[in-house]
Amino acid sequence: MTVPGLVSELLLGAGVLVTVASSVAALLVRSLYDRLHFLTPVTSLAGPLVGAALAIGNGWGTTTGQILFVVLLLAVTGPVLGAATGRLARRSAEPDLGRSR
């Protein structure tokens, strides 16, 4: 096995481990807000780890560029979508929260 292949497999394993751990933890908590917090490692850690593993495994090329672009989109939009979901859930729980008086 080559060094890039080994590094790729280690990064992929770490990304899968983060995803599985976050998923199991999200199943164990009851609060929506706690579940949203367990989504963060998937978008901020697992996505880049898996993307780096695929980029190293594939080498440089068009496919690697597309993979890195998707990882960048995930890293940028993941936290925004999590925050928007939390705000919407809070607003649904407290209907008068967003209204001016």
Rank of each mutant, 00 (worst) to 15 (best):
Leu32His: 14
Met1Pro: 01
Val18Tyr: 02
Pro79Gly: 01
Ser8His: 00
Ala93Ile: 07
Thr64Phe: 05
Leu68Tyr: 08
Gly59Lys: 12
Gly57Met: 08
Val76Met: 08
Arg35His: 06
Leu97Ile: 13
Gly57Ala: 09
Val3Cys: 01
Ala25Tyr: 02
Leu28Lys: 12
Pro95Thr: 00
Ala26Pro: 14
Gly65Ile: 12
Thr85Gln: 04
Val50Trp: 05
Thr62Asp: 13
Glu94Phe: 11
Leu49Met: 13
Val80Pro: 11
Gly51Ile: 11
His37Leu: 11
Val24Gln: 02
Val42Tyr: 03
Leu49Tyr: 10
Ser92Thr: 10
Arg35Lys: 15
Met1Glu: 05
Ala21Gly: 01
Ser44Gly: 15
Arg30Asp: 09
Tyr33Val: 09
Ala46Arg: 12
His37Glu: 10
Gly51Arg: 12
Gly82Asn: 13
Trp60His: 10
Gly98Asp: 11
Leu45Asn: 06
Arg30Gln: 01
Arg99Asn: 03
Leu12Gly: 02
Val29Leu: 14
Leu45Thr: 13
Leu81Val: 01
Ser92Asp: 12
Leu73Glu: 06
Leu32Met: 00
Pro4Trp: 00
Ser23Ala: 10
Asp96Asn: 04
Val18Trp: 05
Val71Gln: 01
Arg91Cys: 09
Pro48Thr: 12
Arg90Cys: 04
Gly47Ile: 14
Gly61Phe: 05
Arg90Gly: 02
Leu6Gly: 00
Glu9Val: 00
Thr62Met: 10
Leu81Asn: 09
Ala52Ser: 12
Val76Thr: 09
Met1Arg: 07
Gly57Thr: 11
Leu97His: 08
Gly15Val: 06
Leu49Asn: 13
Leu72Lys: 03
Arg35Ala: 04
Leu81Lys: 09
Ala83Cys: 04
Leu32Phe: 14
Gly57Trp: 02
